[in-house]
């Protein structure tokens, strides 16, 4: 499903965030990408999501080589992913429901069906009763659950997250971990960059350890 071969990312100025990383993630796997700060976790997530391009090496997702992808094809590749960020990237000028509706509007779903699916996603993360609330009125844990609802509403093949439990209290972090485990159980490929020790200790999947931009 995701195959990286000698993946390297060098930023302008010469900093090498990833140096020849190779790995394979199979469909339906749960993989935690771990490592200290600056190990290259976030860079790897950005490369998988096509937010950034590798300097060299190849990265194949669902049979498509992302390194050789045309710019115009990138949005369609991104729709295969459910992306979750540490800072959630929610839109605070609209309701929780409208935030979850956005990926469905991008996909061009008819409004009624989109609302039905968005409400189902909110229900899945326990936020249906707060669908009209502005994200700013939600707690940190609720905001992260809202971000997860937005990520899964389009039924992605890969759930890709970057530090989704950072800045959350223990209970909220446990909720988020449970949600990821639930999605993994129903066959979604889950890839999470994290340094959440509780998650690493009780990981039910595989681990990809990075250190100084290399697989440790």
């Amino acid at each position: 499903m995701i195959v990286a071969n000698s993946l390297t990312k060098r930023y302008p100025g010469g900093f090498e965030a990833l140096a020849g990383v190779s790995f394979e993630i199979r469909a339906g796997e749960l993989v935690l990408i771990t490592g200290h700060s600056g190990a290259g976790k976030t860079t790897l997530v950005k490369l998988i999501a096509s937010i950034e391009r590798p300097t060299s090496g190849s990265l194949v997702v669902n049979g498509q080589n992302l390194s050789a992808l045309r710019r115009s094809a990138i949005p369609y590749v991104r729709r295969h992913f459910g992306l979750i960020f540490q800072d959630q990237k929610l839109l605070f000028d609209r309701s929780a429901l409208d935030n979850v509706l956005l990926p469905l509007q991008i996909a061009g779903l008819p409004h009624r069906e989109a609302v039905r699916r968005a409400q189902a996603a909110l229900d899945k993360v326990g936020l249906l009763k707060r669908e009209k609330a502005n994200p700013i009125a939600l707690s940190g844990g609720e905001q992260q659950r809202l971000a997860i609802a937005r990520a899964v509403v389009n039924r992605p093949t890969v759930l890709l997250a970057d530090e989704p439990t950072a800045n959350l209290d223990a209970d909220s972090a446990a909720d988020i971990r449970r949600l990821f485990a639930d999605f993994h159980r129903v066959g979604v490929t889950v890839v999470v960059a994290t340094h959440d020790q509780a998650w690493i200790d009780h990981c039910g999947g595989n681990m990809l350890r990075l250190a100084h931009g290399r697989v440790a």
Binding site: I51, S72, L91, D93, L102, I106, A107
Partner: peptide, 16 residues
Amino acid sequence: AAEIEVARMIGATDGF
């Protein structure tokens, strides 16, 4: 800008 950035990350085309 925030909306555009988020929309692009979740698969919005330039046309959208």
